[in-house]
Nucleic acid binder design. Structure first.
Length: 203
DNA sequence: CCCTGATTCGC
DNA sequence: GCGAATCAGG
């Protein structure tokens, strides 16, 4: 599969939107994530941070390994908002990277008041707080959880407890964790709260 | 184990 | 230029 202008364009777009190489590869089809990464580098748009000046490392005499020969020159303007609200996702998203499409209609309390029409203002109010999105996600997850027992917990199963430990109907989430965390993505988001917001929320 | 991007190097 | 294999890390 060749890198047609069309495909390169898609690559550039997705990469700039923060999509991972594997996601892009899946979208394009016919290429592996390695191919995507290789192309990304060849296109010179590898580092997603475009800081021309500034001093990354004032003292960097040499690095025998893992040293990037070229850098510091990228036409791409700095991207202030790494959390791009990717609104499109025709693909089944199993990557809750940046929650974009949140299943409305869940029984969550919508604490987002409807904005005035014409207000383009997106999201991002508070980075933390137990967002409805997170709760909705957890609810959804619990329905599809693997419901494993204590015995079945492994290093890479979500250890989020569900139910009453005193009852027989008590299980653990069991969904795959991702990076060394004890919980799955959904439960991590509710497990670790920056401990703000919960005080300022009006009951 | 899953995943991520980075680099190398034969093609 | 391409990308599999490999490396390095979360």
């Amino acid at each position: 599969m060749a890198w047609t202008d069309d495909r390169v364009e898609t690559l550039k777009r997705m990469w700039s939107e923060g999509a991972s190489a594997s996601q892009i590869a899946k979208e394009l089809g016919g290429v592996t994530r390695n191919a995507v990464i290789g192309k990304v580098h060849r296109l010179g748009l590898s580092n997603r941070n475009a800081d021309a000046d500034a001093k990354p490392e004032p003292a960097k005499p040499e690095k025998p390994k893992a040293a990037k020969p070229e850098a510091a020159k990228t036409p791409e303007p700095k991207k202030p908002a790494p959390e791009a609200p990717a609104a499109d996702d025709e693909d089944d998203d199993d990557e809750p990277r940046t929650m974009a499409a949140v299943p409305q209609g869940a029984n969550v309390t919508p604490l987002r008041k409807p904005l005035m029409a014409g207000q383009p203002l997106p999201p991002q109010p508070s980075a933390n707080e137990i967002s409805p999105e997170a709760l909705a996600k957890v609810n959804a997850v619990e329905k599809t959880a693997k419901k494993i027992s204590l015995m079945e917990l492994t290093e890479r199963t979500c250890k989020w407890p569900i139910g009453d430990p005193a009852t027989p109907k008590f299980w653990f989430c069991g969904l795959p964790v991702q990076a060394g965390k004890p919980y799955c993505e959904a439960h991590v988001s509710v497990a670790f709260q920056p401990m703000s917001s919960r005080r300022d929320r009006r009951r």
